[in-house]
Simulated scan of single mutants.
Amino acid sequence: MGIRKALIAALVATAGIALPAAAQPQAVDAKRFGVYVLVADVDRSVAFYELLFMKDPQVRTPALVGFDVAGGLFGIVDRATFAPGTPAGGSVRPYIRVVDINAAFAHVNTLAPGRIEDGRVTTEGPFSFFRFTDPDGNTLEFFSLTVPR
């Protein structure tokens, strides 16, 4: 919800004034969350992400490939087709929660040696993470969260 609608809704709620039905804020009826990275070479990136996620893509067209990652769609999109002129890398910062941060780090370190930021897992309180780049310079972050019981 936009800040303006949220402010109006809050003011109306505290004032006891009803808005007409058309003005009532509506939730987005989302079916699935996704994110995509822009790439120069779809086939090269698909090979990288198949190894990273250890699975085949769920969706595949010549210019867009999608992987099911924890119920969301992680897309690989051909930059020349969908976003010409967009600079390489840094167009998005996907972050993915993993079960075992150390196992994920070992896997990525095997797959993309030398592309892990600071070359280590960073831990801050219950939050541990590391960032790495794909073949097109897009940065991804894997994280884990230890919730005290």
Rank of each mutant, 00 (worst) to 15 (best):
G66D: 05
A21S: 07
D41K: 02
R60E: 15
A104F: 07
P94R: 03
P126K: 11
R4H: 08
K55C: 15
D78M: 14
T139W: 10
P148W: 03
L19N: 11
A88Q: 13
F129H: 12
L64I: 12
N102E: 15
G114V: 07
T81A: 15
R79Y: 03
T110Q: 14
V121K: 01
Y49W: 10
S45A: 03
L145M: 15
L145W: 04
A63M: 07
A30S: 15
A27F: 10
F74K: 00
V59R: 09
D29F: 10
S144A: 15
L7Y: 15
G71S: 11
D118H: 11
G75A: 10
F82Y: 13
L140H: 08
R93I: 05
L64F: 15
S128N: 06
L64P: 00
G125C: 14
D100R: 09
V37A: 04
V42F: 02
S128P: 11
A30D: 10
I96G: 00
V46R: 14
G137M: 10
A104E: 06
R44D: 08
V59S: 05
L52E: 06
D41V: 00
V121M: 00
G125E: 13
D78K: 13
D118I: 11
L52S: 05
P148H: 07
F130P: 00
I96C: 04
T123C: 14
N109W: 00
I17N: 02
R115P: 03
G71D: 05
L19M: 06
L145D: 02
